[in-house]
Design a protein around this nucleic acid. Sequence first.
DNA 1: GATGAATGAGTTTTCATTCAT
DNA 2: TATGAATGAAAACTCATTCAT
Lengths: 217, 217, 217, 217
Amino acid sequence: MVDTQRSAPPSAERMRDAERTRAELLEVATEVFSEQGYSGARVDEIAERTRTTKRMIYYYFGGKEGLYLAVLESAYRRIRETEQGLHADDLTPVEAVRRIAELTFDHHHDHPAFIRLVSVENIHNGQHLGKVEALRDLGTPAASLLDEVLARGRASGELRADVDAVDVHMMISAYCVFQVANSATFGFLFGRDMLAPDVRERHRRILGDIVVAWLSA
Amino acid sequence: MVDTQRSAPPSAERMRDAERTRAELLEVATEVFSEQGYSGARVDEIAERTRTTKRMIYYYFGGKEGLYLAVLESAYRRIRETEQGLHADDLTPVEAVRRIAELTFDHHHDHPAFIRLVSVENIHNGQHLGKVEALRDLGTPAASLLDEVLARGRASGELRADVDAVDVHMMISAYCVFQVANSATFGFLFGRDMLAPDVRERHRRILGDIVVAWLSA
Amino acid sequence: MVDTQRSAPPSAERMRDAERTRAELLEVATEVFSEQGYSGARVDEIAERTRTTKRMIYYYFGGKEGLYLAVLESAYRRIRETEQGLHADDLTPVEAVRRIAELTFDHHHDHPAFIRLVSVENIHNGQHLGKVEALRDLGTPAASLLDEVLARGRASGELRADVDAVDVHMMISAYCVFQVANSATFGFLFGRDMLAPDVRERHRRILGDIVVAWLSA
Amino acid sequence: MVDTQRSAPPSAERMRDAERTRAELLEVATEVFSEQGYSGARVDEIAERTRTTKRMIYYYFGGKEGLYLAVLESAYRRIRETEQGLHADDLTPVEAVRRIAELTFDHHHDHPAFIRLVSVENIHNGQHLGKVEALRDLGTPAASLLDEVLARGRASGELRADVDAVDVHMMISAYCVFQVANSATFGFLFGRDMLAPDVRERHRRILGDIVVAWLSA
DNA sequence: GATGAATGAGTTTTCATTCAT
DNA sequence: TATGAATGAAAACTCATTCAT
């Protein structure tokens, strides 16, 4: 009978199923929260875009907020992992800062959902992020890399010595985040589509110019 | 006609009352929407923070969306008016761009509700702003002023000639918006309170440095 | 001062104005109630379609129900007046019943708002009409006229003697009311537009045929 | 797949519960809409007369209009099914038309809620019925049956040949609908209770007389 | 683990009516 | 009489969450 099968201990397949369900929920929820914001997102919609049901959100994440928290954490984790791939050992300090700026730029353009999620979280004053202690004061790989490069440049005299890595990282982040997070309103006011390939390319180059002009000794 | 003269015209006081009611709703709604986002904002809460009732929101604005639209339009209008006050005629081009950057910086810090509102609107892809045709492609006074200054600098050879005002405005905006809009998450990750007076002051100076370094010929 | 003029006793003009206002409200309300039903009609809409304001509805009629009652009474009164014009003295009884049927038919087609109003009132079980005692058990001129004609026909042997005027009137009314009151659903189910001129003409003739066939001795 | 088999299928009982809930809502809604009209009906009242809650109306029908639509469709469907039972094979054409008229008459008297619902829908110009495409141009079993009988009568020479079934059906419907739909106002004006058994009986006989008189060759 | 049905509290919206001038 | 502003009660509708199986 079906019944006896149902009470069987969790098989490996089943656990893999479970993992898949969780992952799918997380992925869809990331999209929905980044598209509609926290309050705007509907538990029903998230479930509907999934192969499972609403009940699973409660089973795996406890509720809407739990799901959102999991989304936040996984998003930050993933972004950090990607940034781990940044390297600039083989470049001069000046070349390196330009490269870091450009890669960060691409990175933002390629992960709009994450950027939007960050906006959403800021609207709520970071109150949810605050609950994910794991991420506190950890900075980000991009800032660490910048720190190294700035040290090298400071030593060689090629880069100015009076700025710290977080300042530079902030400037770069600000520029890049704006491209994605504010494209709708800025585009509307100035008739400029910041997501268009040619515009994107220009903005990318300009960012490199700014950073190099600023940091060169 | 006798008829129209005979009918008691609404007294000036009553009209002022009406205007006051409208204005109060608008003001409170600006706060609430910027604090909670569009979906998160509650019509009830807006009304409660007011001396009138929820009913008046429907009377004057037609509904939640109408109120939000009015908030958006009035916010942009107000910000633009404030920016009209910017002047830099008496400064050298280099001094002027620094000044503009710094004033823009202050401006953002002093109007966090507006910045947050812009974030909210971007979360919704600018779909509401798109309905306020009055604002389309109008740019902003700060960009116009930059245009003049860049022209002066280009003519005198003090500023580089290959950047346009919108690019500069975008860079400055990005930097300034980030201070306010992303202070929660950035502060959390890097343990830096961007709204603290001393930090603000440093960031302000850095922005000036960046702009000057970038634009100087 | 305007004030002293305002407190002057009602002039003839003013009374005429008042009468006009009342009449306009009544006319518009007749339309709106017949289009949307009693609950569906909006006091606001009635007022807006008028040159006066909502306040006047309360001033003249006490409220929505009072207005509806006034509409009902005036509609019945008007219809009765129009029916007073029916005459059939110069026709043979057979010709006369056909003529009455046909005129009643035209009458219904030409006053759809009234017919719809009657439907509305029936939906509410005639509870409002019941308050207009003036109309109780009064029948209608059409029925009275039929009574005369039937008497003539009975006397001359041309019409059958075993039917009474109310039965005939009911049959004719039923047929005519249906044309207008049920045209939407009947038209939908049978693909027949009962308000189209040629259809109307056929139905009119058929009604005459039915009545004559039925009543001829 | 294992997956689909493993998931516990909704039990037959639960499904029956769901069906019962839906059916109960539909039944109660039919009553309420026919008693109060579309605008006059209250979602709350419908729910209260039920063992479920208002929420279920939205769950199953999407809203008030969806419920009304479902009511309309089910009402027409049911009435059609009942009419399927009409037969007249064993009667002469003349007897048959009388029989059909009388059965239709009874049918109307026995389903006042349906008749009222049709009135309600006509007040709204059939705008909702228009959305239930399934019913368009389908006519009704009564008309089809009439068509057969008329053909028989035409062939045998017992019935006149120049009328079509829809005309006859319309005449009969008009007479019958009026009994129910206009009983309140007609009764008030002529002091005749059309729902009283003896009156009903007389009207029924008269209808038969009319139809036979009209259609006999 | 999974599913469809159900729910209660909340949220937006509407409406007839009244008030102040 | 007339007008725009204001209102409270009620109506429609939504949403995160839980239950029974």
